[in-house]
Simulated scan of single mutants.
Amino acid sequence: MSKTMATLAVNLRPGAASDRIDGWDVDASGRRVLNIRVRARPVDGEANAGLIRFLARSLDLPKSAVTLMRGGQSRLKMIAVEGLGDDTLAERLERLIAVG
């Protein structure tokens, strides 16, 4: 039996006043990208760790279910979310965006 896993493209903005999801955007290749701000600074992987913690907490998942796949040194990240399918992940994110 295979595990359910969704992927998520994120445009990370570190050093923000608060952790928050700003909503969807589209990158140069036409892919949907979620804009997220985190308080953590982009030093020694702190912003990446802050992103993982924030996403896990926001999605009500254990931190171990959210993994940085690509983009460790870039603002554009590819995140794997274990335990959710793409549709379920999209629904949860839409609710979070709607609540603000």
Score class of each variant (00 low, 15 high):
98 A>I: 03
57 R>A: 14
70 R>M: 10
45 G>M: 09
8 L>A: 03
20 R>A: 14
74 S>A: 10
1 M>V: 12
74 S>L: 11
31 R>D: 12
51 L>E: 00
69 M>E: 11
91 E>H: 14
39 R>I: 04
44 D>G: 11
27 D>Q: 04
46 E>S: 11
78 M>C: 11
20 R>V: 02
41 R>Q: 15
42 P>R: 06
47 A>V: 01
36 I>N: 09
89 L>T: 01
57 R>Y: 03
23 G>W: 02
13 R>W: 01
45 G>P: 07
92 R>Q: 12
35 N>V: 11
15 G>L: 06
94 E>G: 03
61 L>E: 08
25 D>Y: 03
74 S>V: 00
34 L>E: 10
21 I>G: 09
31 R>Y: 08
43 V>C: 07
83 G>V: 02
71 G>V: 02
71 G>A: 05
15 G>T: 06
45 G>N: 12
24 W>L: 07
24 W>T: 03
2 S>Y: 06
100 G>C: 10
26 V>I: 13
65 A>W: 12
11 N>T: 04
27 D>E: 05
22 D>P: 03
26 V>G: 10
36 I>A: 08
30 G>P: 12
47 A>Q: 07
16 A>S: 10
87 D>E: 15
12 L>H: 04
86 D>V: 00
52 I>G: 05
5 M>Q: 14
17 A>T: 07
54 F>L: 04
91 E>D: 15
18 S>C: 12
89 L>Y: 05
27 D>T: 00
64 S>K: 13
31 R>V: 05
32 R>V: 00
